[in-house]
Simulated assay, not measured.
Amino acid sequence: MRKTGILQAAMFGLLLSSSGALADDITFAVAGPMTGQLANIGDQFKQGAQAAADAINASGGVAGRTIKLSMEDDQCDPKQAVSIANRIVANGVKFVDGHACSGSSIPASAVYAEGGVMMMSPASSNPAMTDDAAAKGWSTIMRLYTRDDAQGAFIGPWIAKKYAGKNVAILHDKSAYGQGVADAVRDTMEKSGLKEIFYDGINAGEKDYSALVTKLKEMKADVVYFGGYHPEAGLMLRQAAEQGYKFQLIMPDSIASPEFWQVAGPAGEGTMFVFPSDPQARPEAKEAIEKIKAGGFTPEGFTLFSYAVIQAFAQGIERAGSDDPVKVAEALKNGEPIHTVVGDVTFDEKGDLKNASYDINQWHDGKYAPIPLD
């Protein structure tokens, strides 16, 4: 038995050597807004990635290698994203779970592609990220999340039907994410027969949106779709409430966090947002959710998508028999599903998810839940 064990160990070592494995551990970077106004998204990234790494390591690791994580803070700032991308490449890290904001992911992706690194975002939804990468032949830029155009195709026609004859305004925060999703919703809503009464961009980070609120009130806007984040959304709702004005706010996935309610308070009551079909409701996620909650964190928002990215890296490496990002990307796009906490997922040739589905969630008394679609 001992000779057999020694032989097996030697063969396994040879396999690791031939696959390009050079150490007993493998490092995955986790890149996102770890500080700043959107640090709650960074927390979701960290919690999900760490929980996945712990679970995989407890089961033997990736081809026997222990996963280690390197946390990188870009504050959702494009310049910082490029800076940390260059550092990640220089440090020889081959896989990145990130970034969060599309405005960070898109410029960082060029650094990763040219450096031979795989980037898989669990949150960035602007189509340009993977469209441009595919056009340039960058095979290692992927996302384990949905696209703005798919989200727009879902919610735009619903708004047109649900609020036919109503006054709908569309706002965005001028970011790659916010404007991208707002434009997608605007396009599909108009094609479904409803034209917005107002379209404009706001300056993110301001503290006073009362003039904008007054304008919306004077225009008698019944519904506002806002492509942006929770700090600005919460402020607009509070300042509208101060004017005795209530509109139906609809948003993309960015407000799937208790921080939205912390900013908006009771003024956030009834706010709707689109999010991929509830990953926390999936049986595949039950064990992961229990362990994350046991650590004092609720796996809302992008937590489970970050978890799934780490799972995808691990399964892709094992499927490819190599940690070469190009080979791993090829293995992940071969049509076979990857088994994750958000369900079985497959990727198209661009590195995007196939067959995404969505819920419309609504905030009530500090919590949100899916609503029936009509």
Rank of each mutant, 00 (worst) to 15 (best):
L7C: 13
L7T: 14
S18W: 09
D25C: 03
I26F: 02
T27N: 07
A29C: 12
G32C: 06
G32L: 03
P33T: 14
T35Q: 11
L38I: 14
F45H: 15
A53V: 00
E72I: 04
E72S: 09
C76D: 15
A81K: 06
I84S: 10
F95P: 01
A100F: 01
S104M: 09
P107F: 14
A110D: 13
M118N: 06
A123Y: 05
M129S: 10
T130P: 08
I141G: 07
L144S: 08
T146P: 00
A150R: 09
G156L: 03
I159V: 14
A160Q: 13
K162E: 14
N167C: 08
K174Q: 11
S175R: 12
A182L: 10
A184T: 07
K191Y: 00
L194Q: 05
N203S: 14
A204N: 09
K207Y: 10
S210Y: 13
S210R: 02
K217G: 01
E218P: 01
M219T: 13
Y229Q: 14
E232N: 03
L235Y: 11
K246Y: 11
I250S: 12
P252Q: 10
S254Y: 00
P258M: 06
F260H: 02
G265L: 07
G268Y: 11
E269R: 02
Q280L: 13
E287M: 08
A288F: 01
P299M: 14
G301D: 11
Y307G: 08
A314I: 00
Q315S: 08
Q315A: 12
A320R: 10
K327V: 03
K333P: 03
D352H: 04
A356F: 07
Y368R: 05
I371S: 08
L373Y: 03
